[in-house]
Amino acid sequence: MSVDIRSQAEAPEAAPRAITLTVNGKRYSARAEPRKTLADFLREDLGLTGTRVGCEHGSCGACTVLLNGAAVRSCLMLAVQADGQELMTIEGLADGNQLHPIQQAFWEEHGLQCGYCTAGIIMSLYEMLRRNPKPSDEEIYDTLGGHLCRCTGYQDILKSAKLAIKLIGG
């Protein structure tokens, strides 16, 4: 399809935009460059460094957070898209010093070694258990399939997931 380039407008100035969002129940107002990913924004601007960045193209799952309750890749969203939305990150899970049952399960079953993948995996499991407290093995595999771990060999992560289901009472 031919397009007349001369009739095209110049791209507008990419100045930072004011955004307001809720993260782990707390409201934040900040300015975000339109090109900044949500993952970088959470880490660099809000100081929530529990969310990790691995591959930046959706494959590894390290950056997974909850957006209005759904597990999503924060490296594949722009910070400005989170304006007005509700997010939850790994920092929102524990109640003071009391670990969340999923965290407790990872602790007990040695579900982590270096821990780089862990925050993302826990957020995905959190969504899975919200949708269905008694997931089938297939659902667990489907959920964990969206994450890469270079250390554990996955078996202890699977055990952790199963213990978490028990602790939560599924």
């Binding site: 957006l67 597990a71 890749r73 995905s124 969504e127």
Partner: peptide, 11 residues
């Protein structure tokens, strides 16, 4: 269900 993972399909 063949597409990527639940986390991809959520978006």
């Amino acid at each position: 269900k063949w597409i990527g993972h639940p986390q991809i399909r959520n978006r």
